[in-house]
Design a protein around this nucleic acid. Structure first.
Length: 239
DNA sequence: GCCAACGTTGGC
DNA sequence: GCCAACGTTGGC
């Protein structure tokens, strides 16, 4: 099962300071747009009933455990691009070619994306999204088959995503294993999703606040049940 | 290849 | 702790 991972994803090559977890919380509820004072209050509410634990990390983990993200969208690049001499290409066809059609999702070096990886539960489904390519959009459906564990590439000096500031005792970056489920019945282009997003902003439809548009650069993002179902329904349309 | 969006860094 | 400069993401 443990797949041999392929390099993928784009991420900061530098090693940023440990982040601010509050911004990673409740993105879909638009919490980050609240005034600071309100955010602080929510934070203490969220942590007030956990007297035992302390520390930003532990609280953030508990906050995440309360969240109910059921579906995901994961971006990967299907066309060759070299990062520190290494090709980071990993399209859905590359996933299909892996042993067991399974791979580890390594190379994520953004805290918010990492936190979403940690939220993932085995069995949950995600869209496999092709980014930074001729035609960006959703190509297929994958399933989480192994929950978050340390990303080994952070310790490998030659890896484009090596992070000198991380230790095996306290790894900074995590990955999950995912397995190919199926191609979508047709490729669903970003341009089409964007049209729905625009329409839904007016009608109040499910893509109104989809992270794909509101968190433009996030490479691992949650979808609500409604968003996932809506996008799936687009498969049936003729184009 | 351009460049808007946006996350991170570091000076103050 | 603010915020300008910088670097990356990723569509077009």
């Amino acid at each position: 099962m443990p797949p041999k991972g392929k390099k993928r994803g784009r991420a900061a090559l530098t090693a940023p300071k440990e982040p601010d977890f509050k911004d990673a919380r409740s993105e879909l509820q638009g919490e980050s747009k609240r005034p600071k004072s309100q955010r602080v209050e929510m934070k203490s509410l969220a942590t007030g009933n956990v007297a035992e634990t302390s520390g930003v990390e532990a609280r953030a983990e508990q906050d995440r455990n309360k969240r109910v993200h059921t579906h995901w969208l994961m971006k990967s690049e299907p066309e060759s691009r070299f990062e520190k001499g290494v090709d980071v290409k990993f399209g859905i066809e590359d996933l299909k070619a892996q042993p067991n059609q399974t791979a580890c999702w390594d190379g994520i070096r953004n805290y918010q994306a990492r936190n979403f990886l940690k939220d993932m539960k085995a069995g949950q489904e995600a869209f496999f999204y092709h980014s930074n390519c001729k035609e960006p959009g959703i190509a297929g459906i994958i399933k989480i088959v192994k929950e978050a564990y340390p990303d080994h590439t952070q310790f490998e000096k030659k890896d484009p995503h090596y992070d000198a500031s991380s230790t095996k005792e306290k790894p900074k970056w995590f990955m999950v294993d995912i397995q190919f489920m199926r191609m979508t019945k047709r490729f669903i282009p970003l341009a089409e999703l964007k049209l729905h997003h625009q329409a839904h902003k007016i009608s109040g439809g499910p893509l109104k606040d989809a992270a794909l548009f509101t968190r433009q650069r996030l490479s691992v993002q949650p979808l609500t049940d409604e968003q996932f179902a809506f996008i799936l329904s687009l498969e049936e349309e003729k184009h």
